[in-house]
């Protein structure tokens, strides 16, 4: 390498050039700090690069291709594909009797649960951040769902009809027993206050167990955000005559609101991955029992696209809301 080029290289930094030079042994620029950093950094993340290309990028492309093809298994050889265009997507959305229904239900549930989880975990985090007796125990219990609602555990008991039976019996007994939320619901709908909104609210209340079970991580994240707020901010606000309510909205909320986005994304993804997600169950069934790989690929891409859209909308709304505080 000429002296000029070398001098140029030391002052003028191009990541692309460096990337190339990094891998040339005996290269004159090999030992500059930047090249060294590039070399070592790449070495560190090399496992990820390999893994991502082999086990993420490749399968993703393959499954995208599969979703446009009719896939048939050939024993010992792998599989064969014939191009069918958008037929798989059409089949998933119009022909399959259950997919449509499950999709709408699960996505609706996801939207409601996400909002409820965010509110719930925020409130709980604020409470757990206060000083009171038994706080350590409460924290320990609230993080327990991280274990109890993971993997196989949450879905398995709902698969059983026994609970449905019990619920049916409870409804029959309802006249003697007191079901607060139903009574309240009837009362409110009788008095004619905005029906739809209350339906959503009551759905949230009825599924409060699921919501609490799904908000372990979110509580920790909010709590960590709360703890990173400097106490001197509150002291200053207090000295200036700020009430607790005001300092909550003027200090606590703005400081923690960036975490809303993290939690929103986490909740949506978590909901996706849940074992008792019926869309995923259906996809699994179609893949491994009916061996319709093309259709199942199309189904999972549709679902993924919807969730991505939700994450996008959530991110947009939250970033707008957060910005207004800055």
């Amino acid at each position: 390498m000429s002296k000029q080029l070398k001098a140029l290289n030391e002052h003028w930094y191009s990541p692309l050039l460096e990337g190339v030079q990094t891998y040339i042994p005996g290269n004159a620029t090999y030992k500059t700090m930047r090249a060294r950093s590039a070399r070592i950094g790449t070495m560190f993340i090399l496992p990820f690069i390999i893994g991502f290309l082999l086990f993420m990028a490749k399968p993703m492309v393959e499954s995208l291709i599969m979703s446009f093809n009719d896939v048939t298994l050939v024993p010992g050889q792998g599989y064969e594909q014939t191009y069918v265009g958008l037929n798989n997507y059409k089949h998933a959305l119009t022909v399959d009797p259950e997919y449509n229904k499950f999709l709408v239900e699960e996505v609706g549930q996801m939207a409601i649960n996400t909002i409820a989880t965010l509110v719930m975990s925020f409130v709980v985090a604020v409470i757990l951040n206060q000083e009171f007796k038994g706080r350590t125990l409460c924290r320990a219990i609230f993080f327990l769902p991280v274990i109890l609602s993971s993997g196989v555990l949450p879905g398995i008991e709902h698969q059983n009809e026994f609970y449905d039976m019990m619920a049916g019996m409870a409804e029959q007994l309802g006249e003697s027993g007191v079901d607060l939320s139903t009574t309240l619901q009837n009362l409110l709908s009788l008095s004619g206050v905005g029906g739809q909104v209350f339906d959503v609210v009551f759905q949230m209340i009825d599924s409060i167990y699921d919501i609490v079970m799904a908000s372990g991580i979110q509580i920790i994240v909010f709590l960590s955000g709360l703890q990173s707020i400097s106490p001197s901010l509150y002291e200053a606000a207090d000295v200036e005559g700020c009430s607790a309510w005001e300092s909550f909205w003027k200090i606590t909320f703005p400081m923690v609101s960036p975490l809303l986005l993290v939690n929103c994304i986490y909740t949506i993804i978590d909901f996706f991955m849940k074992n008792d997600n019926r869309v995923m169950e259906l996809i699994y069934q179609i893949t491994y029992q009916d061996f319709k790989f093309g259709i199942s690929a199309a189904m999972s891409w549709i679902y993924f696209a919807i969730a991505l859209a939700f994450i996008g909308i959530g991110a947009f709304i939250i970033s707008k809301a957060v910005k207004s505080y800055e």
Partner: peptide, 25 residues
């Protein structure tokens, strides 16, 4: 290192993409 932003975007993608999408392949 070169393409650092790109690879980090891949990490974020890894978080977001549900493994169910790629399970078949």
């Amino acid at each position: 290192f070169p393409l650092k932003k790109f690879w980090f975007a891949c990490v974020v993608m890894l978080i977001i993409v549900p493994p169910q999408t790629i399970q078949t392949s």
